[in-house]
Design a protein around this nucleic acid. Structure first.
Lengths: 145, 145
DNA sequence: TATTGTTATACTCTATAACTATA
DNA sequence: TATAGTTATAGAGTATAACAATA
């Protein structure tokens, strides 16, 4: 088996996705969509300490930048989430070029329940590691991203 | 920034690819192709201690299984590598259903030089970590894959 | 002029199904 | 019957280019 970092990262991701996919299926979303819900709940960066949603709603482009995905990709993701009733678009107060994208109540429920499901999948994925190794893995990856 | 393992693994991989891609470009291959060259050099698993190439050549399907990619994907990859003059197909001695896929001399050179280039890219990628953290990251990922 | 959202389009990676030749 | 290679095809996921509305 290859010890190449690229190989290891790719296959670790594939194995994790085999757990998170089924874990999220009951909620009708996948991992990327959960990430969008999470970033929408957070709200603008300056307000991270002020709690979820503080500081006003995000535009599509702001959400895309947080997740480092293309703004045209975000259009399609918001389309999907809106069709599922999990987010809403409305004109942004203050800049009519932007959409203010926000979680619906159902989106908030889905974020909470999907988050719990993914927590369980991650625990299963890491179950072969000591707690120290598991938390170190997360810390080290955070520094690399 | 998300602390989700899926997000971290995905973006770590993207950031690493930004380094390995340019590092391999002078050799006309990408990381996936390098992995195929590496697995072809290794030869059948039982001969890992006996040195590169020992134990006879691999079939396409054996190579595919080692890298956990589909056999139809391997067809296209071997096509590409053969067109670049890095591997050769010949009838497998002993089972005419199989192709014996082997590195050409140029394939061997490319594997060696590309490997050095990727080593450098990985070092750059990990340069913010202590040596202990870097090697632990590799060990932990190996256990998860 | 620059930015936001949008659409059309294309490209990469991968998998599924069906065919052939061999076993 | 089963396996190895191959081809055709389709589905994700993503990115680029161009346009309308707004700043």
């Amino acid at each position: 088996m290859s010890r190449r970092l690229g190989y290891l990262l790719k296959h670790a991701q594939l194995r994790l996705a085999e757990l998170t996919g089924p874990a999220l299926a009951p909620y009708g979303i996948d991992g990327r969509e959960l990430a969008v819900l999470a970033v929408l709940e957070t709200g603008p960066g300056a307000a991270l300490e002020a709690g979820p949603g503080a500081g006003g709603p995000l535009s599509q482009q702001e959400a895309a930048q947080r997740l480092r995905i293309d703004r045209t990709t975000m259009v399609a993701m918001i389309d999907t989430l809106e069709a599922k009733g999990l987010v809403s678009r409305r004109p942004h107060p203050g800049d009519r070029r932007k959409n203010a994208v926000e979680l619906t109540p159902r989106g908030r429920d889905t974020l909470r329940d999907g988050g719990v499901a993914v927590d369980g999948a991650e625990r299963a994925f890491l179950s072969g590691l000591t707690d120290d190794d598991a938390s170190l893995l997360r810390d080290v990856l955070s520094r690399l991203v």
